[in-house]
Design a protein around this nucleic acid. Sequence first.
DNA 1: GAGTCTTGAAACAACATAAGTTACATGATG
DNA 2: CATCATGTAACTTATGTTGTTTCAAGACTC
Lengths: 155, 155
Amino acid sequence: MRHDSRLSRMLHVLIHMDRHEGAATSETIAAMLNTNPVVVRRTMAGLREKGYVRSEKGHGGGWRLGRPLSEMTLLDIYEAVGEPAVFAVGPACDQPSCLVEQAVNAALSDAFEEAEKLLLTRFGKVTLADIARDFDARMARHPALAAHAGTGWHS
Amino acid sequence: MRHDSRLSRMLHVLIHMDRHEGAATSETIAAMLNTNPVVVRRTMAGLREKGYVRSEKGHGGGWRLGRPLSEMTLLDIYEAVGEPAVFAVGPACDQPSCLVEQAVNAALSDAFEEAEKLLLTRFGKVTLADIARDFDARMARHPALAAHAGTGWHS
DNA sequence: GAGTCTTGAAACAACATAAGTTACATGATG
DNA sequence: CATCATGTAACTTATGTTGTTTCAAGACTC
């Protein structure tokens, strides 16, 4: 099943924005993500509501961080993009009348809830500043790399 | 994102088959799952390859268990239905050239792999006999319930 | 052996959803 | 006021599970 890449994309953008002077327009961000400006606005809207980014219209407008990366966790961004379903596997029916199906759902739910809890707990412990630090380390090892060529973004 | 319900459905079927005399046809099973006989054959084919069920053609043919429920785990069935992707959330790009994206993917992968490992480890510890026992307990508490009415299956 | 019941499998349609696109309104800058 | 940028609604596309049709082939009954 195809996955939801909104979380991944927003993390990518936020870290670039931290290293970027001035506001970034939806068009610039879209070029970086190989997508469309409207998709960027749509997804960033969730982050704006929570205060992780701000947007401004008009000349010199665009998107800016609303707080430092050290004050955003993976969990925050996951929630801001709409808390998409974590799992691609699930029950055939949510309120089954069949007792066998109820027992099956109970067994699966137990396992899935435990795994989800672990995942989200871990998400809550990782800040975007942590990821940015990892990026710095990668940059130090591969100083020649410069992706997003011509888009105004450093890699 | 829409769930893959094959695992859930197959667990449901296998437990019913255990309580069912004789072979069950794809059509009967399909009626129970509110689906199509061809979908049943398609999904059960994976279980047959691993020996969890056997199929026979002709009069009196159909599907039978290939081994006791106590010798099948959730993990076994998960693998038999094709090990579908566990997570509905994932990276935008698998081999990014951008170092920021690499750092993001690394952070997400770490968390997802840990959660997946926990989930599958737990799957490996739960047998279908365990679920069947839970069904028995539910049946004892709700003796009046009888789903799949008219399909020849008890609930 | 004819007729019937069953699985096996290919090919295609339906459906759901994330993603992409178009179009236009609104607000800010110079 | 012209331009740049976001805001938003509506529509299209892409992808993958599920559903359906169709026919071949094996197995049982008579």
